[in-house]
């Protein structure tokens, strides 16, 4: 599939937690379809039996010792918070526990 319906885009916007307006949805459907058609070109490349490359450098086993490093103070941690209370980040009510 290299074109997206309005419902597809609305579903994706839901997954991405973006409350797109109707006008945005309309515009996005058209733009994304053009882009998708273009990027679908990857499927025409001679990629059979080619391993996927997720990383430019073939590094492995980069770890750090289990040693405590100084972090932020609670004040620094909370310095950007839209709202704070009792030393914690205050957030709107959470619908479901999972």
């Amino acid at each position: 599939m290299s074109s997206l319906s309005r419902e597809d885009v609305a579903h994706l916007a839901g997954l991405a937690r973006i409350d797109l307006s109707d006008a945005e949805l309309d515009r996005m459907v058209g733009e994304l379809s053009v882009i998708l058609e273009s990027v679908a070109k990857v499927q025409q490349a001679p990629i059979a039996d080619v391993p996927p490359m997720s990383h430019p450098m073939p590094l492995t086993n980069v770890t750090r010792p289990d040693v405590v490093r100084p972090g932020l103070t609670p004040d620094e941690a909370l310095s950007g918070a839209p709202e704070r209370e009792l030393g914690r980040f205050a957030v709107p009510r959470i619908l479901d526990e999972d």
Binding site: V68, A77, G87
Partner: peptide
């Protein structure tokens, strides 16, 4: 002693948001 991906301590029951980076 420290978290999975950073050097913050893991002690239980510390002051809120005092073991973060």
């Amino acid at each position: 002693l420290t978290k999975m991906f950073c050097g913050c301590p893991t002690e239980f029951g510390a002051e809120p948001n005092s073991q973060v980076c």
